[in-house]
Design a binder for these strands. Structure first.
Lengths: 347, 347
DNA sequence: GGGGTGTCTGGAAGCGCTTCCATGCCGCGT
DNA sequence: ACGCGGCATGGAAGCGCTTCCAGACACCCC
């Protein structure tokens, strides 16, 4: 790799391959060969071209190259960015996984349904990205069909789909483990704070975690308490007010399992506001193990967020490399991390 | 806006403008006109074209269009993604600011210097993005020159530059405010935990905050204590061990000002590990006011992170729209947020 | 010495779009 | 009736690159 000059030339328009060719006194094809490291270019010729490139501060137009090659060297990442801290951590994993590859990353936040539609719309053409990574949401089938038609591979992270490679964790099991842990600590009045049921695109993790929760209760022979399952949005504040309601119940829970750490943090806040001591009077378990969890000492179900992104990127890269990839869902391990927010039932 | 069919046609390759033209029995130019909403297309013709588009599930190739138009409709965002939570929040602001625009966002994490070089390298050509947003770092001058030559506007968020529009906050003032607050509480032994001095690209916020800290001390007539200014990386763990050292000093500080909330959280952890009570025995002030700060009750200097991103996007959009934009730095207000991590000196 | 067999090179087509320009047509005014 | 402005339309060039293909040449072996 040659060092580039530190000051680009004054020229108005950026140099094109034709300019370089002219300057070096060779044909376009030859310049292209040199640029792309093809063999069969005579030493001296190569030198001349290289010199011209340097002098002109030439850099190939990626757009033109894309058009010609029918590849973009970008990987699209569709992610509900705002909604959760965990999504960010996953994206970090993706970035890391792409690090060594020639692919760039185009990020699409799809908070609004409109934006979501638009995102998939663009990728559908197959010329915005060579591959797609969807985080915490499953693309509508119509778009999936388009993607397939356009031959652009897609892998899902934290979302299941029968005909796509997915990297997920077993949310049902996670919910069950968390709840069982609470049961083992002697708790019987265990409430749940989660998200609203998923819409057509959105994560179903919360639902699955609810299921795990219910299953654990059932296995323990406990009846489901009607007011104990609450649903809001993936936000600390909403979780907080929900938790307040819960804690003001005539028979308040002695433990709360939240479908995400973000929500668990809201629960902790509510407890603090109400002067309820954690874990003495209330045990709280979250889900995800985001950064914040460790410094507030939240017991949680750790999910390898970063790793899920990294692995997703890896799978996509493989697909892009033409390796036959199994269309199967890969389940990452969950792990209960016990910290200071849980303890035995005391009353 | 017509509703698109829910199932794309089975065809192998995506439809091109030529296909649509043939199908509708018109010329390419006409299809292009219809697609781009030009006037001067007869009603019935337009209908036929529209029908063909629907039938073929045609969507224009953005690459081809980019090449022809010499625009990409993407905005590049260069950001040290991993290093700080605050950067993420800024990116969120950027996303929000771009929401209503036709521009997409391409995110470049530039953790490694290599990656950084590469990022600017690609943008230098001017065909990867129509505009550039650099977060918390200042691009090397050589690249800036290229950007200018390629006519691609660039605005900096959380980084200063004499010849570019910037959205910053007054870090020196912020550092001073935080420190003065501590002084007012009666503290005299005030330590500082910050980042290493900036390299050629990297944020200088920490340095400026240090300066504010020193200035406040000086104004109070306090001598700078040699071991009290420590520098590590923008990471909780590093800050934590630095803080431990600090707190084990023969004359430990009674207050610590950290250059970022992330680092402040590390400091809090160190205190907890050492059994030092906050705020009774140690006051801690952070900087940024990230989410986490509020739920651990960290006193901090609030910086409008989200807003800085949003505003940066706004400025860039203006530039892109051809509005003459003043090359001046815009300083966003800072605000001291007092929470539970600070209190009067007690010993 | 002639016909391979290679290496090196340039021309030109093509990627899918936009847009300038020329053409054909209509209706209007005189 | 005829000419002209303007609307509607298609052809073709061009955006900057890759790559197929063919030509030029050198070299080698029989």
């Amino acid at each position: 790799m040659e060092a580039l000059p530190d000051t680009p030339p004054k020229s108005g328009q950026p140099a094109t391959i034709a300019g370089v060719a002219a300057r070096a006194g060779v044909g376009l094809a030859t310049v292209s060969r040199v640029v792309n490291g093809h063999p069969n270019v005579a030493g001296p010729t190569r030198e001349r071209v290289l010199a011209a490139i340097l002098e002109l501060d030439y850099r190939p137009s990626s757009v033109a190259r894309n058009l010609s090659l029918r590849r973009t060297f970008v990987i699209g990442v569709v992610v509900p960015f705002f909604t959760s801290d965990s999504a960010v951590e996953r994206v970090r994993g993706i970035v890391a996984g792409l690090e060594a590859s020639p692919y760039d990353l185009a990020l699409f936040d799809v908070e609004s349904p409109d934006r979501r539609r638009r995102a998939f719309d663009m990728f559908g053409r197959g010329d915005r990205a060579d591959g797609l990574l969807a985080v915490s949401l499953v693309p509508p089938d119509a778009e999936l069909a388009r993607l397939e038609a356009a031959q652009i591979p897609c892998v899902l992270v934290d979302a299941p789909h029968p005909s796509l490679p997915c990297v997920v964790s077993d949310d049902v099991a996670g919910g069950e483990v968390a709840t069982r842990y609470l049961l083992d600590l002697g708790h019987r009045r265990i409430a749940f704070v989660g998200d609203k049921p998923p819409d057509r695109f959105r994560f179903r993790s919360s639902r699955d975690r609810t299921e795990g929760y219910l299953r654990a209760l059932a296995r323990a022979g406990l009846e489901r308490q009607p007011g104990y399952v609450r649903q809001g949005t993936q936000s600390r504040h909403v979780a907080r007010s929900i938790a307040e309601e819960l804690l003001r119940l005539p028979e308040p829970p002695t433990a709360i399992f939240a479908a995400s750490d973000t929500q668990a943090l809201g629960v902790l806040e509510a407890a603090r506001d109400l002067g309820i001591r954690v874990p003495d009077e209330l045990s709280v378990v979250g889900f995800d193990d985001i950064e914040a969890a460790s410094y507030v000492g939240l017991t949680t179900v750790r999910q390898p967020l970063f790793e899920s992104g990294r692995r997703g990127a890896e799978l996509l890269l493989q697909a892009l490399a033409g390796e036959p990839f199994a269309v199967r869902t890969e389940t990452l391990p969950l792990e209960l991390v016990v910290r200071r927010s849980t303890g035995p039932r005391k009353r």
